[in-house]
Design a protein around this nucleic acid. Structure first.
Length: 269
DNA sequence: GACAACCTGACC
DNA sequence: GGTCAGGTTGTC
């Protein structure tokens, strides 16, 4: 999926393109994309797009009628703004139409979902309430406190959205490389100084990735349907077998915490 | 912590 | 044919 930088890029694009627009029609092609059932059409029709918010990797679209659409793109979900006459793709599941253009939800693997609830009830949405602090906003001392003296591998903690929200497989691997930490290390054995460094690396990489409009490894595109550029700057993700940019050692790939992890066995300890 | 499940498509 | 994929959840 889109991780934090990709979700942020999409949100910024959508905010530019459709804020203030009135929903005039909805084309629900795949009803099952609504996680908890199809919302009453009158909940959406005639209302305006008020503003956008990101909660970890979730996208929140606040509507002027005090309802909020929550979207999770999972692995292959896309949200794009299209002209009415743009050809519809095989995997477009929902189209929210405005007078002059439309928002399309597309998802090849159909892992992604949407939800619609009253904005005042957002704090009661369990999967949002469980999210840890945002990885772009968490202060260093809080990060260290959450990670320190845990037995689990550092990689699994970074991936755990209840510990810290926003990182996925790409940016966890890239941040651990930057901080020179072996992804399979138990978090408890890592020094406070090194965790502080990791915190700084996470921030720097996420910011650089947002600036580059995200990583397009395969499916990801922004709100205009364009690919991101940050994959060009990946130092370990997707580079197994290639030389480490720091020491030349061949980048390894190993399953850690159920996800393939890319790292340099010489630089990362 | 390991694994399967949810799906489709790309690639070997 | 088999393996793998920016995620998450539920089961042993």
């Amino acid at each position: 999926m889109p991780e934090l930088p990709e979700v942020q890029t999409i949100i910024d694009d959508l905010a530019d393109k459709i804020t203030g627009k009135r929903i005039v029609e909805i084309d629900l092609i795949t009803p099952s994309v609504w996680r908890d059932g199809i919302p009453q059409p009158e909940l959406l029709l005639g209302t305006k797009i008020k503003n956008f918010e990101r909660a970890g990797k979730h996208i929140l679209i606040h509507l002027s009628n005090k309802n909020t659409i929550i979207i999770h793109l999972k692995m292959t979900g896309k949200l794009t703004v299209n002209k009415h006459h743009d050809p519809i793709s095989k995997h477009t599941h929902l189209v929210i139409k405005f007078a002059r253009d439309e928002l399309r939800f597309n998802d090849v693997r159909r892992f992604g979902y949407l939800d619609c609830i009253e904005s005042s009830q957002l704090s009661k949405v369990e999967y949002l309430a469980r999210l840890g602090p945002d990885s772009l906003k968490i202060p260093a001392d809080e990060f260290i406190r959450l990670i320190r003296s845990r037995k689990r591998t550092i990689k699994s903690l970074l991936l755990d959205q209840e510990v810290i929200a926003g990182l996925g497989n790409i940016y966890s691997d890239e941040a651990l490389f930057a901080a020179r930490i072996d992804p399979s290390r138990s978090a408890g054995g890592i020094s406070t100084a090194r965790l502080k460094k990791l915190h700084g690396c996470i921030l720097a990489i996420l910011q650089a990735a947002i600036k580059a409009r995200g990583s397009s490894v395969s499916n990801y595109v922004d709100g205009s349907g364009k690919r991101g550029d940050f994959q060009k700057y990946h130092k370990v993700y997707g580079r197994s077998g290639q030389p480490c940019v720091r020491c030349g050692t061949s980048i390894k790939k190993r399953i850690i915490s159920g996800r393939s992890s890319h790292f340099c066995s010489r630089c990362q300890r």
